[in-house]
């Protein structure tokens, strides 16, 4: 009876027909692929760059692609900025630049 039933295309079978599972253990090894989705984010305290006010997870106004192409950089004072933004500030300040947030002398975090 069962063998006969299985000749019928599966899609025709309603739940009134019994399908005997080989095992009630639906095993994880029956998982062939799990394609997951994640978003990345910078592990920073603030969400936006204090200089350009753009989101860290976005990019600075001069960049087109976020992430690797427009990285964040931390100062010794633990304040983070877009690398490109802080470089502009540091380079415009002579002889010594201060952190825009806390005014401490700017040192790149080692």
């Amino acid at each position: 009876m069962i063998y006969y039933l299985f000749d019928i295309p599966f899609s025709l079978l309603g739940n009134q027909f019994s399908l005997n599972l080989l095992s009630c253990q639906l095993l994880l090894d029956q998982l062939t692929e799990w394609h997951a989705v994640a978003s990345w984010t910078w592990d920073a305290q603030d969400e936006t760059c204090g200089i350009c006010r753009m989101a860290f997870d976005g990019c600075c106004p001069d960049c087109k692609l976020p992430g690797d192409d427009c990285p964040l950089i931390w100062g010794a004072c633990n304040h983070a900025f877009h690398l490109h933004c802080i470089l502009k500030w540091v380079n415009s300040q002579t002889p010594q630049a201060h952190c825009p947030m806390c005014r401490r002398e700017w040192q790149f975090k080692g």
Partner: peptide, 11 residues
């Protein structure tokens, strides 16, 4: 500049 523009709009 572009940066200034962006920033001022946000402000």
């Amino acid at each position: 500049s572009k940066i200034a523009c962006n920033r001022l709009q946000k402000e």
